[in-house]
């Protein structure tokens, strides 16, 4: 899975927001907010990644165990799928 073309992540104040541009903006109206872990995963998802890879990266970079990382990635991916952000 990876992020579709036409979504950009920027900061507004101390917050991370994702908005749609170009063609995507016709379908996706609004914005998604990400915490810092979400931002970390988003940056990785600019390339095609598996959930397993993302969970490994979380374990390597954050103070969480493998089980928690897998659950976090699953939840994050579900949320992005619901928003139709993933290709």
């Amino acid at each position: 899975m990876k992020i579709k073309e036409g979504f950009i992540l920027r900061s507004v104040g101390s917050e991370n927001v994702v908005v749609a541009v170009g063609e995507q903006s016709r379908k996706f109206n609004g914005m998604i907010r990400l915490n810092n872990t979400g931002k970390f995963l988003w940056e990785l998802l600019k390339e095609d990644r598996t959930e397993e890879f993302l969970a490994d990266e979380l374990v390597a970079n954050y103070d969480i165990d493998r089980e928690q990382a897998t659950a976090d990635v699953k939840r994050f991916a579900e949320r992005l799928k619901e928003a139709e952000v993933l290709a």
């Binding site: 950009i8 104040g13 101390s14 908005v19 541009v21 170009g22 914005m31």
Partner: peptide, 23 residues
């Protein structure tokens, strides 16, 4: 704080569609 502001603020704007205008 910023966390409380962002959602509220985005309800009061009109966003451009073009990528460079959005930036």
């Amino acid at each position: 704080n910023d966390n409380e502001i962002v959602n509220r603020l985005f309800h009061q704007v009109i966003m451009p569609e073009n990528a460079s205008d959005m930036e």
